[in-house]
């Protein structure tokens, strides 16, 4: 059986932060992905700062990206700032990209 949360994570890697040029998964903006019911995906998401003007677009892009995955019927994006984002959330791939 295909794990929809993995597919959702892969889909989210297509969403780039326009300022940093790095995808939102490697940037550490995706805190958690769950599938509480079959075909229903919940995503906990944060921004690097609460005042990020890109925030609304990143949420929209994340929702549209995951909704395009075959088998996913509903997507719920939950915005959280607790705990706040820190650079520690950036993945090794993300750090390597930013050092370039």
């Amino acid at each position: 059986m295909v794990d929809l949360t993995d597919q959702a994570r892969d889909a989210l890697k297509q969403v780039l932060d326009p300022e940093a040029g790095i995808n939102i998964v490697d940037l550490g903006l995706i805190c958690d992905i769950r599938e509480p019911h079959h075909g229903h995906v919940e995503i906990d998401m944060t921004f690097t700062t609460e005042v990020c003007p890109a925030g609304p677009y990143l949420m929209q892009a994340a929702e549209e990206s995951v909704q395009a995955v075959s088998g996913i019927e509903a997507v719920e994006i939950i915005l959280t700032f607790d705990p706040p984002w820190t650079p520690d959330r950036i993945t090794a791939d993300g750090r390597a990209f930013l050092r370039l």
Partner: peptide, 16 residues
């Protein structure tokens, strides 16, 4: 409408 959708709608309203 999902909770995510509600948050999103509010956020869009704040971008002038």
């Amino acid at each position: 409408m999902s909770a995510g959708g509600r948050v999103l709608g509010g956020a869009h309203g704040r971008l002038l």
